[in-house]
Design a protein around this nucleic acid. Structure first.
Lengths: 246, 246
DNA sequence: CGGTTCGTTGATCGTGCTCAAGGCTAGTGG
DNA sequence: CCACTAGCCTTGAGCACGATCAACGAACCG
C-alpha cells in the first residue's frame, strides 16, 4: 500500500522511468514521506546562510528558491514543484547557498542527512568529501546566476576575479597581489555574459581606479578591499565546512 | 607515500579541512588519481549532450565549462581549477548538461561511475534516483544561467514557461493548453532577471502574438510550437535517463 | 468604504550592444 | 632587417533593450 502510494505520488511519476521498483526500494522511498509538514503561503523554510539540517521533498504546492543581494535585489534560482527535493546539496554545506520559501500552501517532508545517508547506505569520509565537492560546485553556479542576473557589469567582473583568487588560494596558490590567469577577454566576457568590447571598458575602469589590472596573462590586484566592496563578495560559499555536516 | 601525495595535491589542500584522514581513506582518494591523461590547450573533454561516462579530477591547468546556444552565443558556466572534480552530476545523466574544455595544457584523471560508486560504497536504485534528482537540479540551474546570460527577455520568458510546463507534465499534471500557475509578475521577473515592468511588456508581446497568455493564476498556451521556437527549447535536460547510468 | 496588492501604461534615461576601425605584440618567412 | 599575418586588445559613434520614475486601473478584502 505504501508502495502503491509511492509510485502514484509526484516523485513516483518522476522516478517511474528508472524501471521496476522492488517493495524494499519502495519502502525506502516511502520512508522519505513519513513525516509531513504543512506550510502557509510565503513561509521561509530555509534561510540563506543558515545551517540546513534537512532537505525537503515537496508533496504539494508551489515553492521557490532565491538569493538576496545586499542592495535588496532578489534572484530566484528556481521553482521547486511537487516531487522535487530541495536542498540536498545543503546537507553537505555549512550554510545554505539559497533561501527556500513557499508560494502557495505547501506540504513537504523533511529529509535529515541521517535519513539520506541511511537510504544511500553510505557513511564514509570520502563520500562526504565528494558530496561536498558537488554541493560547492552547485553553490558556485548559483552565485554566478545571481551575479549575472542582478549585478552590474563592473560589480560582477570584480566578483569573478575574487572568486578565482579565493579558489586558487584554497588549493595553495599564493594570490597576494595577484595571480597568473590565462583567460583572455573573450573568455571572461562569455563567463560574465558581456561582450568582449564592453568587458574591455569595464577593465579599463578597474584599471583607472587603481583597483585591479589584467594584462598578459596576469591579474594584479592593487586594492583588494576596494574590489571586495565593489563585488559585495562573501567567500563563505567556497569554504569547506568547519563543523561536521552530513 | 601515496597518502602524503594525496594531501599535498590541490584536492588534498581543499579537503584538509575535513580533518584527519586515515591511510585507508587516503588510499581511496589516491585511487582517483591512478590513471592520468594530458590534454593540449583548447581540447574538448566533454561535449554537451554526449554521454559522459567519466567525471574528471583536474590536476593541473585551467579549464572551463560552457553551453552553446543555437545562435552561436556561448555561456561559460565556470572555470574548474586543479583540485576540482568536473561532471560528477553527468554520471547520473544521460547526456552532459555542458561542454568541458581545456584552456591551457591540462592534466586530469578520469573517474568512472563505477569507481565513484565503489568509493562511495553505494549501489542502490534509491541512491541512483537521488543522485539523478540532484544532477537534474544542477542542470536546471545551468540552463537558467545561460537563459539569463545569453537570451533576450522575450526568449527567456518563453523558456521559463516551457520549463514549468514540462516539469509539471512529468509529475502528472495535464498541461495541454496551459496550466495553473500561482506566480505573480514580480516573481517571474526575479526569476528572469527582469523588472516586473518590463516583464509586463514582454507578456503583452506574447499575448498580442497569440502565443501565450498569463492571467489570474493561469498560463494559457495558444501556440505551443511558436513558443518552442521562440525559446529554442530542448527538454532533454529535464528527462530521466532512458538507459542505465551510474 | 479605504486599503492593499497586482497589473498596466507612458515618458525618459542609461547600461551595455553593434558596427567599424585601428593598435599592439609575437611569430613567420622573405 | 623588414613585410606580413594572426590574435588580442583598445577606442569611437550610435543605437536598442531594458531600467527607472510616475501614474492610474482593477480586483479583492477588511
Amino acid at each position: 500500500m505504501m508502495a502503491a502510494q509511492s509510485l502514484e505520488s509526484p516523485l513516483g511519476n518522476k522516478l517511474r522511468a528508472f524501471g521496476d521498483w522492488t517493495d524494499a526500494e519502495l519502502a525506502i522511498l516511502g520512508s522519505f514521506s513519513a513525516r509531513r509538514r504543512r506550510f502557509c503561503p510565503h513561509q521561509t523554510l530555509i534561510h540563506e546562510h543558515d545551517a540546513a539540517d534537512d532537505a525537503y521533498l515537496v508533496h504539494s504546492g508551489w515553492t521557490y528558491t532565491y538569493k538576496m543581494l545586499p542592495d535588496g535585489g532578489r534572484q530566484i534560482i528556481g521553482f521547486p514543484l511537487p516531487g522535487d527535493i530541495v536542498g540536498l546539496s545543503n546537507l553537505a554545506l555549512e550554510g545554505s547557498a539559497f533561501s527556500f520559501a513557499s508560494l502557495t500552501e505547501t506540504e513537504v517532508s523533511p529529509i535529515s542527512s541521517g535519513a539520506l545517508m541511511r537510504a544511500l547506505s553510505i557513511e564514509s569520509k570520502v563520500a562526504r568529501a565528494m558530496l561536498w565537492s558537488a554541493a560547492r560546485e552547485s553553490a558556485v553556479t548559483m552565485e554566478h546566476l545571481t551575479n549575472i542576473g542582478r549585478r552590474s557589469a563592473l560589480s560582477r567582473t570584480a566578483h569573478l576575479i575574487l572568486e578565482l583568487a579565493h579558489r586558487l588560494r584554497q588549493i595553495g596558490v599564493d594570490t597576494t597581489g595577484g595571480f597568473a590567469c590565462p583567460l583572455n577577454q573573450h573568455l571572461f566576457a562569455d563567463a560574465l555574459s558581456l561582450t568582449a568590447i564592453h568587458l574591455n571598458r569595464v577593465l579599463r575602469q578597474l584599471r583607472e581606479a587603481d583597483i585591479v589590472v589584467l594584462r598578459s596573462g596576469r591579474v594584479v590586484i592593487h586594492d583588494y578591499d576596494g574590489l571586495m566592496e565593489l563585488a559585495a563578495f562573501d567567500p563563505g560559499y567556497l569554504s569547506p565546512p568547519k563543523r561536521r555536516v552530513l
